[in-house]
Design a protein around this nucleic acid. Structure first.
Lengths: 241, 241
DNA sequence: CGCCCACTTGATTAATATCAAATACTGTGG
DNA sequence: CCACAGTATTTGATATTAATCAAGTGGGCG
């Protein structure tokens, strides 16, 4: 299934005609190798990127040389109408696995949104959800302990993957090193390693080979003080309509 | 000057006709006392709020009983087109000083944005900047020490106030208790108190009587590893046009 | 084989939380 | 004006969390 349809389908079932219109303004699929930048902090933005396949993140380099991962991008993500209104990108988009990406000019997408209000709504919805997730990350880094934070991130990732039907039972793709995890959680990599061992020894999850397997979701959610409300996942309106 | 014009004027000079149209869909000014909620986490959102005067914040209560302040709202802020697409608010809007607020229905504002593309662009711009600030908060809480974080927040607040012409020299309104500061920075209030004393004894700033006075901005920015790029403040295109 | 990278372990230190109490400050009613 | 309650700030002592430093181990791969 088309990843964008799948993602925006979490909000609403888009008319096939709209999908075709979107496709018509998208570039053919671009390939990015794991570890390469899709778009760079500081550049002037003109294009909107859609992740079609793979796993990517946004991150920002600080003046003090440190790095913070700001969010993760799953297939269908990354649409952000209006970026070209800014003079420079304030963060880098990085492919964390091999990625297939499509690009559209912001302008084209705006025009399309003018013509199809339901497309605009779906994109607005996606942007609002992404913002809500960003806010939860602030709350998480600010108020949760290292263990809770890590548990929370795993819950979040699993729920997002599940919602997109990209989880295989209690197991899903999560191609990220312990170092990246540290940069996402605001912890040192040594501490990440130890915390991971704790969670593993509690038999809550297995995180290895670029995959996350959740063994005890309720317990994990409890530890994390996880409340899925911020993900704004409605009872899925998709499928069999 | 109209606070919304002042804020959106950081992006573009809006046609007076558009301003009148916006005013026409805004409720008259609502008053909120310091400490009262403007809109609550969990409620179903229908309205878009504009802060006309005063100082407010967004915050979120976690399941573990803790609280994180997610962002600060300055006059002209708070427009977020599309909120009504979500089923519930994921955070609370709280007046931190007495506030004057105007409300518009999301629907009215969308229609207006359809009619006036430059209004839509200005609102999109404001939303993008707010997101960028949220990302910087993630980076700050994740990668900066307590002292740096606090210095950073003060730099940010000062720059934002300055950009809106709401700073009086090196001095500006900042009506927030040390407890709130702690909830914004992800520190304990005791630690905030001590960090504050450090910054004060270094003669970098004075924070008292609900005001922030910056004594040595370059030094403060250096400590904070502050880089204003994320605020997306262009060389102001306002005034004397 | 040997190198590189990711992960792991141990020891130590630094940052920050927590607990407990004292000291301002603010507004209120008498 | 004073006594008072309530809140905000400050201080000290101690405990915990997580960072840092320094060395391993282990697997993939040319």
């Amino acid at each position: 299934m088309h990843p964008i349809v799948r993602k925006l389908g979490l909000f609403t079932k888009l008319d096939p005609q709209i999908i075709r219109a979107v496709d018509s303004v998208l570039s053919g699929a671009l390939e990015f190798m794991a570890g390469t930048d899709i778009a760079r902090q500081g550049e002037q933005p003109t294009a909107v990127y859609f992740l079609l396949d793979g796993f990517a993140c946004r991150h920002r380099l600080l003046d003090n040389g440190r790095r913070q991962i700001l969010s993760f991008l799953l297939p269908g993500d990354a649409c952000k109408l209006g970026v070209s209104l800014l003079e420079h990108r304030d963060h880098t988009l990085l492919a964390m696995s091999n990625c297939r990406v499509a690009r559209a000019s912001d302008e084209d997408l705006q025009h399309l949104s003018d013509r199809y209000p339901s497309l605009r709504e779906a994109l607005q919805w996606a942007a609002l959800v992404e913002e809500s997730i960003a806010r939860e990350w602030i709350a998480s880094v600010g108020q949760r302990s290292g263990t809770q934070r890590m548990a929370h991130l795993f819950c979040e990732h699993y729920h997002r993957m599940k919602a997109l039907d990209l989880a295989d039972g209690n197991d899903c793709f999560f191609p990220i090193s312990q170092n990246d995890l540290a940069d996402a959680l605001g912890l040192s990599s040594v501490h990440v390693n130890r915390t991971l061992q704790d969670l593993r020894s509690l038999r809550l999850l297995v995180f290895a080979d670029k995959r996350l397997r959740i063994l005890d979701l309720p317990k994990l959610e409890q530890i994390a003080a996880f409340d899925a409300a911020y993900l704004h996942l409605k009872a899925r309106p998709r499928e069999d309509a």
